[in-house]
């Protein structure tokens, strides 16, 4: 943390158990906080209240509702992101922060994005399949209202950027 001082990093994850420590570090180093609430919108709101109560500006917080890979519970997180975004747009300041998704590390844990070509017949080349899985996952969360995407594969990133452009045209 000492080396990164003033670098405006996103620091996470703040949870109910550790948020005071993270706030102290972020205040000292002028960083932003990732507030984490695994698949629970109520805890998501609660952690934001706690962070605000502790005197940290919510403008410097992003929400992390946890991420599920495509095919592995994505729909649960999708509806949380969507509900959070709609509530924020309707005026709930505690739910109006940017939302972050950890796309890559979740994607490359699932077999569809990591199994070799010869393991399941008909799935096609891993080199193409893996980034497609990552890009599709990111595109879905984009539609749910996510703002920040942690991604890995250059081909997936390129594809996803095209999707973003398509949406903003």
């Amino acid at each position: 943390m000492h080396v990164a001082k003033g670098e405006n990093c996103l620091v996470g994850s703040a949870k109910e158990s550790n948020y005071r420590t993270i706030i102290a570090l972020c205040k000292a180093g002028k960083h932003k906080i990732i507030a984490e609430a695994p698949c629970d919108i109520n805890i998501g709101k609660q952690i934001n209240i706690l962070i605000q109560d502790a005197g940290f500006d919510l403008k410097d917080v992003v929400m992390f509702q946890s991420t599920a890979a495509l095919g592995y519970g994505l729909d649960y997180i999708y509806s949380i992101l969507e509900r959070c975004r709609i509530t924020g747009l309707k005026g709930d300041k505690l739910m109006a922060m940017p939302q972050i998704c950890d796309i890559a590390s979740e994607t490359y844990r699932v077999k569809e994005a990591s199994a070799d070509d010869d393991i399941v017949p008909g799935w096609g080349k891993l080199a193409k399949r893996a980034p497609m899985w990552e890009a599709a996952c990111a595109a879905l969360y984009l539609q749910a209202g996510a703002d920040i995407f942690v991604m890995a594969h250059p081909a997936a990133i390129k594809n996803f950027k095209n999707t973003v452009e398509l949406f903003s045209a």
């Binding site: 609660q46 605000q52 959070c84 509530t87 505690l94």
Partner: peptide, 14 residues
């Protein structure tokens, strides 16, 4: 009409 959080009263009063 609002999303539940344990500290919903404190959040309003803040």
């Amino acid at each position: 009409r609002e999303i539940f959080a344990d500290s919903f009263i404190e959040a309003f009063e803040k």
